[in-house]
Computed example of a mutant assay.
Amino acid sequence: MKNSRKLWGLIVLMFTTALSAQTIGNIDEIAPFSEGLAAVRQGEQWGFINDQGTLVIDFRDDIYWNKNADLSKEDVAAVKYPVFNEGLCMIVKKVEDGVPVFGFINTKGETVIEPQFLNIYPFENGVTTGVLFDKTFRGENEFKLKIYDYKFFDVMVNTQGEITDYFEKRDHIQMTVKRYKMPDIGAKILNKGLVAIHKQDKGWEIRKLDTKN
């Protein structure tokens, strides 16, 4: 009986050791570590490992990256590798006729900010600015085709996904992939409580924000 218990204990130990010695193969690309996690790519999917080499976010196809990133930019166009910034990593989904909208997951792989931005800057000190895409169903026409109302705003958003400030309403954004051009962000955080707002045909305006909260 004792021998059988020893054998069973040995089997459990070997099984536990095998699980802890996780090996991840077929990796095509490894991004630099950021906030304790590094993105690893298999084909068109990315996952994340921790500093022990354990896969903590499984491979998925909605993690955003751009192999032709423009590093002279500061917005979405500059994202060459998936990275975590202030606990968030950018994801993307396609809407309408293939137009990309962007949101964020946390370090557990949970979506904390739903994809709803046409362009957005990296978070800094808990907030950032971006171009918000809003689509509202209005009904059907006489041909039973669905009609939607589209609205676009420059906004400020925090890391919880709360829109804290609405700035300028944006017009003339075509939501079909053949005519779509990613809009520049018309709001820039200059300092805590200070933001620059671009007003059409009037240039930039410096605005103080209410920072009581």
Rank of each mutant, 00 (worst) to 15 (best):
L7T: 13
W8R: 13
G9Y: 12
L13M: 04
M14C: 14
T16Q: 09
A18I: 10
A18N: 09
A18R: 07
L19N: 15
Q22F: 01
I24A: 15
I27Q: 11
E29M: 09
I30A: 10
S34N: 14
E35V: 02
G36T: 05
L37H: 11
A39V: 06
V40S: 10
G43W: 00
E44I: 03
Q45A: 07
W46I: 05
W46M: 03
F48S: 04
F48L: 03
N50F: 11
N50I: 02
D51Q: 15
G53T: 05
I57N: 07
I57H: 02
D58R: 03
R60N: 13
D61E: 10
D61V: 09
Y64I: 02
W65G: 14
N66G: 01
N68R: 15
A69I: 02
L71S: 12
S72R: 09
S72G: 11
D75M: 00
V76K: 01
P82E: 08
V83C: 15
F84T: 14
E86L: 06
V92D: 12
V92P: 02
K93G: 10
V95K: 04
E96L: 00
V99Q: 02
V99Y: 00
F102S: 15
F104A: 03
I105F: 05
T107E: 11
T107I: 08
G109C: 01
G109Y: 01
T111H: 06
V112K: 01
E114S: 11
P115T: 07
N119W: 03
N119K: 05
I120F: 03
Y121F: 13
Y121S: 06
P122Y: 04
G126I: 04
V127R: 06
T128A: 02
T128H: 00
T129E: 10
V131Y: 00
V131S: 06
K135I: 08
F137M: 14
F137A: 13
R138G: 15
G139S: 13
G139A: 12
N141K: 04
K144A: 11
K144Q: 15
K146M: 14
I147P: 05
Y148T: 08
K151E: 11
F152H: 09
D154V: 01
M156P: 00
T159F: 01
T159N: 00
G161I: 00
G161H: 00
E162I: 01
E162Q: 06
I163E: 02
I163W: 00
F167G: 11
E168V: 05
R170F: 09
D171R: 08
D171A: 14
I173H: 07
M175H: 07
R179C: 14
M182Y: 01
P183N: 12
I185Q: 08
N191Q: 12
N191I: 01
K192S: 07
L194K: 03
A196Q: 08
I197M: 13
H198P: 04
K199P: 08
Q200T: 14
Q200M: 13
G203A: 03
E205S: 14
E205D: 02
E205M: 01
R207I: 11
L209Q: 10
L209M: 06
T211N: 04
